[in-house]
Design a protein around this nucleic acid. Sequence first.
RNA 1: CGGGGUGUGGCGCAGUUGGCUAGCGCGCGUCGUUUGGGACGAUGAGGCCGGAGGUUCGAGUCCUCUCACCCCGACCA
Length: 412
Amino acid sequence: MRQSKLFGKTRREVSKEEKSINAELLIRAGFIEKHIAGVYNYLPLGLKVFRKVENIIREEMNAIEGQEMLMTALQPKELWEKTGRWSEMADIMYQFEDGHGSEVGLATTHEEVVTTLAKQQIKSYKDLPVYVYQIQDKFRNEKRAKSGLLRGREFSMKDLYSFHADQNDLDQYYQKAHDAYLKIFKRLGLEAFSVEASGGSMSKQYSHEFMVKTVAGEDITILCDKCSWAQNKEIFQLKNGDKCPECGTKLAEAKTVEAGNIFRLGTKYSEALGLQYTAEDGKMKDVLMGSYGIGLGRIMGTIVEANHDRDGIIWTKATSPYQIHLLNLAKDDKSKAEKLYLELQAAGIEVLYDDREISFAKKFKDADLIGVCLQVIVSDKNEKLELIERENKKIKLVEKKDLLSEIKKYYS
RNA sequence: CGGGGUGUGGCGCAGUUGGCUAGCGCGCGUCGUUUGGGACGAUGAGGCCGGAGGUUCGAGUCCUCUCACCCCGACCA
């Protein structure tokens, strides 16, 4: 991509009202633009990152046999009344009357819809287990949208739903999904750990939240430095001097972002909506369910919160919008950079090429702000290319013929 | 939803006890000089001062209402 043509310009400053680091950096660097409170547009650069996050999640969901589908956001009141959540979620759900006088709402989540769909698809124990998921926008009228992408009112979420014949099968899959989640965070370059949490309005059975440590977090997690034991403060009251139940080390508190969560729903929704199957013995039984969510925007915001310095964003290898940021510093002759750009593209490298006619200083500043993992500089000064790692600003002189392998080595 | 705050060119801001043609920085256009960490000079374009109503000879400025946004709290899959 030629930066001179990029739809999304960097900005030197952002409103002092924008207090959250992730929003400030993402807006300044041209990834997102705020539309209204808690609702953001993704510009081309932002969508690049979004797609990378999305694809990793998709791959891991497919790996645990999730089948991707797409459900509607617009839903009728009647459906939500069956589970009692029309009034229960009235505060947070956008509910309104359409032009025909019918009451409808925008989905905050999809248990109601997916369970209804499952009634048409699941008839027998032979149809179980089955897993479906979607990546789709959710709407929640948060009383206070805040923290940039961390708490939006319209946001994209991956939600997986599993259907099982018995508790044992649910438990097994729950564990599988749990491990898949840890894998997702690891691939994304986020240090996440799971904690037990209460099911909230979702379920009576316990659930797990996936936490990433960052000061921007809204949750408090009690954790052990030594072993991996951790628990949400909601369900663990820390008394001074409390020791880790696993290894006896003193426990500490940390602010965390809840980047994902998984629930054992049991029969809550299947009972309410009448989702049953015929068992082997011919009897009708309730289907057991699980649901598993990850907010994509929240992950993007979390990555920025966890990976930035005073110059800007530092994307993780898996989420860098481009593999390399090519900066042309040669004064008169642009042909060297132009040629390199075309060659890299031809070799299948994702390259952002700063071909703008501006001062070198500005190119450096913008590149650091945007945060592509690798920068490469073409100049008159050096015959060789300068390859810079964004994270530590380490400079390495490389021959042009070695650049491709250096890039591949870095991302391998 | 309670408390506090902010709305002025694309972005960030200033605007005195009401006063004349609403300023500044950044960005943008043109010309020239520059070029290894946000260059400089010249010149130019761009404003229903969030919205509605009111007070006044006169309102960005005062009053009422309203909308939006931010922060703290409460709330929260």
